[in-house]
Design a protein around this nucleic acid. Structure first.
Lengths: 243, 243
DNA sequence: TAGTGGTCTAGACCACAAA
DNA sequence: TTGTGGTCTAGACCACTAA
């Protein structure tokens, strides 16, 4: 989509947001680039300047662009703060930290949903889940362990796919049309259980930054439950607060 | 301030934001209340509806109000997610979690700035800092330890004030005109050092959710360095991610 | 001086909720 | 049917940056 459809029911600003956001995501506009001025965008897409500004304000609020009076509007460098704002892949996250990402799949199988996870996913206990456990490496050393529990009925047969080399997001989108709308998460500090300590190469009871996350697909349905065990000595989260 | 001054150089929407935000902060509009419709606000403050909407959109983005088409605009209940979005006091944070807050001052003295903190505050090592260490209690049990390092030249004599019973934010504002504009922070998981474990009533090497924060005052000057040691077994952070 | 983003307006029409 | 917020417009003037 690179054109605005005035007959569509989706608002113009929504369509324009998708277009401009896409240009940034797909690298047509790269970090540091100046994007066309409001007046040009207004002409090109045949919408009022107010509507263009509405979209640019959204993109600026989300940190994708930086607006400078008198100079122009520029695409920003992605920051590590993103990890607490958006659902970013491990690969993106490591790139933003300047660390070389790596992955090893440890386990993939179907399981009946335990009560706690079923409750988070709003399904019955025993519902079939696809469990995918992956060890994440940073610069070749263990960084995190990821346990992903996917509602199997929404992505049947996913364990037969090429999970190792295809990014999970691409796989879910391409094969099942699943994209993430939003997620809720809880962040804790816990001591490493013995088996995780061994896998992560740390002492038992060393501290882990532990995140539990429920991700909602575009239909606003809880679809994935995720447990992230980050090594406390290697992984930190960053963010900015308002006053 | 409860009136818009059209001669002022500060934009109308900025003034209106302060007014409406103040009504929420000071409890004139309480959680659950419906606030006047855009048309009424537009009349009352004699600004266009577009300007009113600009302000309401800001407040909605920051989670203070919820807008419902056809129904109205309502003040929201503060959420625990706030702790990762705004600079909230320990008292506010505990109230939002439904926990009874308590505080014990452990130590207050002047110290020369160590190199690492001086660097964060962008001053010379040795610069005079006011150190305030407080134990935070939740429902009467130790919850967190806070080490606050304030640039003493911005708040001279603060250690002679009534630090125990007056909230720090109120004290800084009232006596020194210091308010927080924004802050940057880093979140880690660390094992509890022996002396902290004893104070917090946990085992040595139990996990702590450890936060280091630099707060900037309204002049955008780094003014406080804060270390928060939260008990991992009692304190968690919550937030929502976009897709 | 030219070009950029920032602020502000009046007015129109639409979609949705509740009475 | 009434009142609410949602979308969209054309046009004006201002403040800042860079040439």
């Amino acid at each position: 989509m690179t054109q605005i459809n005035r007959l569509s029911k989706t608002p113009l600003y929504h369509q324009l947001y998708e277009i401009l956001n896409g240009k940034i995501r797909h690298g047509e506009w790269k970090p540091g680039d100046m994007i066309p001025p409001e007046s040009k965008l207004s002409e090109e897409f045949e919408v009022s300047r107010v509507t263009v500004r509405q979209v640019l304000d959204m993109l600026a609020n989300e940190g994708f662009i930086l607006r400078e009076r008198g100079r122009g509007t520029f695409v920003t460098q992605p920051k590590v703060e993103q990890a607490l704002m958006r659902i970013v892949s491990f690969t993106e996250d490591m790139n933003q930290r300047g660390i070389l990402p790596g992955t090893r799949a440890l386990e993939t199988r179907l399981i009946p949903a335990p009560a706690d996870i079923a409750s988070e996913l709003q399904v019955q206990p025993g519902e079939e889940l696809a469990l995918i456990v992956r060890l994440r490496l940073g610069d070749g050393e263990p960084m995190s362990l990821e346990e992903s529990y996917l509602l199997h009925k929404t992505c049947p047969g996913i364990l037969e796919q090429d999970i190792v080399s295809t990014p999970m997001r691409r796989l879910l989108d391409r094969e099942y049309g699943i994209r993430w709308l939003r997620a809720r998460q809880v962040i804790r500090a816990i001591p490493a259980p013995r088996h995780l300590a061994r896998i992560l190469g740390i002492q038992p009871n060393a501290s882990l930054l532990f995140i539990e996350r429920v991700s909602y697909s575009t239909t606003n349905t809880p679809t994935e439950f995720l447990r992230l065990y980050h090594r406390g000595d290697r992984y930190a989260l960053y963010n900015e607060l308002k006053g």
